[in-house]
Design a protein around this nucleic acid. Structure first.
Lengths: 224, 224
DNA sequence: CGATCAGTTGAGAATGGTCAAATTCGGTGG
DNA sequence: CCACCGAATTTGACCATTCTCAACTGATCG
């Protein structure tokens, strides 16, 4: 399976934590029960998604450094977790549910918080797929990624590098890769966003956020 | 807000649990921070969803008796929880995250399990909206509901009563109500499912499940 | 007996998909 | 450095699905 040079047991995060290194394209967990664990992404981009019997794929959520995935994922949903770029992942092996219940609070609290954030992202994602047009939906995702990466606007301009292929985007957005291509062209030509050679450039983040109704509140805890 | 005759404090579920009764159409939690709580549905049908600024609604998940909602819901995602039929709900007030961390294990374990199941349902739901056509998607949802209600097939025939309007279905499926109507007509005329006057009748559950690629595994814990 | 809401149906428009053929880009081996 | 390969991107033409708008029916409720 995954090549993972540099894997090792870590004491720094408590007992039974593994630090693993993946390359772009590696499968971290294939949802077939081969691996029950929590995952905490430490570097790189990771996708969690599902495969349909038709062969189609849906990406539920992109995981960036600091993001967590695990509860429901393995035991029920049979999600597939994949590295989209070289990535380092901390893995807490064991049944996630049991693991969480027996973990000390200083571990379980941030993990639960990570799960809660992920749930909120997925809820917003569902709203996108279900109720926004392709252009809005695509722009919304790019805005979310910019925000989550902590990219700082310079006079409204935001730029970040992004390893996603158009086909990754398509699977996240519920579109075809061909259509994603056209949508990106559209966004580029209308001066909102350009995404070329692995870097996204949002030309006026405020204007784009207005245009697609992007509201960061689902990424931020109330009162945080 | 919600009319709630018969609400009362309950000792039976431990401290700080409220049992509340809602009528169809009542808002249980509007996502504006008016109420922070876990919810455990005890009877009736409940929807959790989001409102977009455009006025559109997306239903993330239907909650049936025994289902739980709460983590991420209130603090981040600002989900709106609504009763779709007369419903009884146990409410555990307080910040869900904190609540879960301090709860005794016999409470936190089933709640976490409920959250995990819900996550799995939502993942499958995303797959539907993102990657299945309208007919498959609709049939898939009806199959899920039949399964979750524990409806028993009688020679392949399943019948259950269902308070959802076509517009509720539309908001869950990412379609318009008009199109849901046509899809239901389609399913009825092709002899798969009829949904009229609040009762769903699946004529041959095996055949339908094959047709839409319905696999119950996301509703069942591995090895359960 | 209106009024309102859920469900139906039709006609035409829009959005997004399919198929197929370039073209570009990032390596790799020579 | 260059030729070449496979993967990702791009574009065109056409098709399918789903939406929009609009009208109409039927039930329910005060």
């Amino acid at each position: 399976m995954a090549a993972s040079a540099g894997n090792r047991r870590t004491g720094g995060k408590g007992p039974d934590v593994w630090r693993r290194v993946y390359e772009a394209g590696d499968t971290i967990s294939n949802g077939d029960g081969n691996k029950e664990a929590f995952f905490l992404v430490s570097s790189g981009w990771v996708a969690s998604g599902k495969m349909l019997t038709s062969g189609a794929r849906i990406v539920l959520d992109f995981l960036l450094p600091g993001d967590v995935v695990g509860i429901g994922t393995t035991e029920w949903a049979r999600e597939v977790v994949t590295a989209l770029s070289p990535a380092t992942v901390f893995e807490f092996p064991g049944a996630p549910l049991e693991r969480l219940l027996t973990a000390p609070r200083e571990l379980s609290a941030p993990i639960l918080k990570g799960i809660a954030r992920r749930n909120a992202r997925i809820a917003e994602h569902m709203a996108s797929i279900g109720r926004r047009g392709a252009v809005e939906r695509t722009a919304h995702l790019l805005l979310e990624l910019a925000h989550r990466l902590g990219a700082k606007p310079d006079r409204g301009r935001v730029r970040f590098s992004c390893p996603l292929t158009q086909s990754d985007l398509a699977d996240a957005l519920g579109l075809t890769a061909v259509h994603v291509n056209r949508v990106l062209k559209d966004l580029r030509e209308s001066g909102f966003v350009s995404f070329r050679n692995g870097t996204v450039e949002i030309h006026n983040i405020g204007r784009l956020a207005d245009f697609v109704g992007f509201d960061t509140s689902y990424l931020t805890l109330r009162g945080e």
